[in-house]
Design a protein around this nucleic acid. Structure first.
Ligand SMILES: NC(=O)c1ccc[n+]([C@@H]2O[C@H](COP(=O)([O-])OP(=O)(O)OC[C@H]3O[C@@H](n4cnc5c(N)ncnc54)[C@H](O)[C@@H]3O)[C@@H](O)[C@H]2O)c1
Ligand SMILES: NC(=O)c1ccc[n+]([C@@H]2O[C@H](COP(=O)([O-])OP(=O)(O)OC[C@H]3O[C@@H](n4cnc5c(N)ncnc54)[C@H](O)[C@@H]3O)[C@@H](O)[C@H]2O)c1
Lengths: 224, 224
DNA sequence: TGTTAATTGTGAAGCATTTCACATGAGTAT
DNA sequence: ATACTCATGTGAAATGCTTCACAATTAACA
């Protein structure tokens, strides 16, 4: 009935499962707004273009959240998923490189709703240092290490040119930050225990390009 | 020796393989700059943190590009990979929604180097329509369908608010565009044959969050 | 309170992807 | 020419992920 909380399920959870949990979370938020009390794996699957079995299996890695014959309680499941993802808390995030991408990220209000609080900005451009972006003063990159530590930053977003990204990340690692979202198109080297996710838009365009030249069309589309 | 071009290899190529091809391409460009003539699967694997077998298997789906005992000719392989990905040509791209993210994308010079030419911008904001972004005049969204067709646009980048993204995409689909890079955090509905890739930064932050709370650390990292 | 309808949770089966391991072939040196 | 080395290309094994199928369980209702 209860999951022994002392020894959390030590199965290896796949990257795909985690990504799907993110999607369930988004859909559950929507369902909540639409005043659904419960939702079945079937409905959830339909909205996410998955199979009901996939939904149930994903959730089952973390516990039994549903009621047979009824489905899952929306609000409760949403809370559980947010707990699993670790977004039931506030994360202190710093953004490094207040350029095109960096500015876009700071302006984005959805992150804060999900608990990602960008509380520091860094740049090396004298014209940017000291300026105010959405209420945050841009710090000098020179003080990166000390300020990351003093402000207990837990995650950083790296939006600097590729040429300096590794150098910046080395400092970030020294400041004991363990999570990095990287926009620079390079393979960052970090010690074990430091998590890196890459956001690579060129790669997605290339995927589209591949799909097009292979006209991967699931069923004939071409006109006669 | 030659691949029968009449019946292209009809194996299903996995998404991961395509993404790795993108990475090989980037690394091969680098190797070319470093004046490497040839590269072994071992070296390529080392740079990408993969196994040599993985590299060879990926490439083998498309042909035999290497020389036993020697490795792969860098320049030639790069050309082959770019051919496979379909980036040995120019893609005409339109960007819809010249806001924070949209502006960042237009300013990014690397896309053009890879053959992705952003040649049209659309917005519905009167202050933006008619303005000049990197040499491109922002068009009125009202003319989306006709201008996409008249300008023979092949891909679009959707960077509008989530609330209007589906509506915009419906028009894009009517204009016979078959590839969409979407930044709005929603599940777009498109007919078969239209390719959609989602760029979802919140999802990557959530992945980092999950990794942190599960301190997935491969080997003990914590201090004593 | 018993019967029916619905939907979960989960082993096992079915696929897909990755890794292994080695025969094969190309280049090199003698 | 012949032997030797090196690294590819690829079936086969191993691993991982998704789907199936059904027993178990609950809600609803007669
Ligand atoms: N703009 C895009 O659409 C896009 C797309 C894909 C990838 N990227 C990648 O994202 C990164 C940022 O791109 P961008 O377009 O925002 O570039 P940008 O030049 O607009 O911004 C980079 C910022 O980093 C700052 N910077 C440079 N060196 C620094 C240093 N040593 N320390 C601290 N700050 C420093 C610059 O002052 C600038 O503000 C790049 O690596 C780029 O390749 C950008
Ligand atoms: N900024 C970020 O860091 C970020 C991060 C993740 C996701 N996103 C997503 O990317 C999208 C764009 O975000 P943004 O921050 O650039 O928003 P933004 O508000 O800065 O830009 C949106 C642009 O779309 C235009 N627009 C609105 N309605 C339109 C319509 N009907 N037709 C044409 N244009 C229209 C607006 O005028 C504006 O220029 C959103 O869906 C957002 O959720 C943004």
């Amino acid at each position: 009935m209860d999951i022994p909380s002392g020894s959390p399920t030590k199965k290896r959870i796949s990257e795909s499962t985690i990504h799907r949990l993110s999607r369930y979370f988004r859909t559950l938020s929507l369902l909540e707004k639409e005043n659904f009390e419960t939702v079945s794996s079937k409905e959830l699957a339909k909205r996410e273009k998955l199979t009901p079995a996939q939904v149930r299996k994903d959730l089952s890695f973390f516990g039994s959240f549903g009621t047979r014959g009824l489905g899952y309680p929306v609000a409760e499941l949403k809370a559980k998923v947010s707990r699993i993802l670790g977004i039931d808390r506030i994360w202190r995030v710093a953004l490094i490189g207040v350029g095109n991408i960096g500015s876009a990220m700071v302006s984005y209000k959805e992150f804060i709703k999900q608990g990602f609080h960008i509380v520091k900005l860094f740049d090396n451009d004298q014209r940017k240092i000291g300026s105010n972006h959405k209420g945050i003063i841009v710090s000098d990159i020179k003080n990166l290490r000390t300020e990351l530590q003093d402000d207990r930053i837990e995650m950083v977003i790296v939006a600097v040119p590729a040429t300096v990204a590794q150098y910046i990340v080395d400092v970030v690692v020294k400041a004991e930050v363990k999570a990095i979202l990287n926009f620079a198109p390079i393979n960052l080297k970090v010690p074990p225990g430091v998590h890196v996710r890459n956001e690579n838009m060129a790669m997605e365009l290339e995927y589209l390009s591949f799909a097009m030249v292979n006209h991967h069309s699931p069923k004939g589309i071409g006109k006669a």
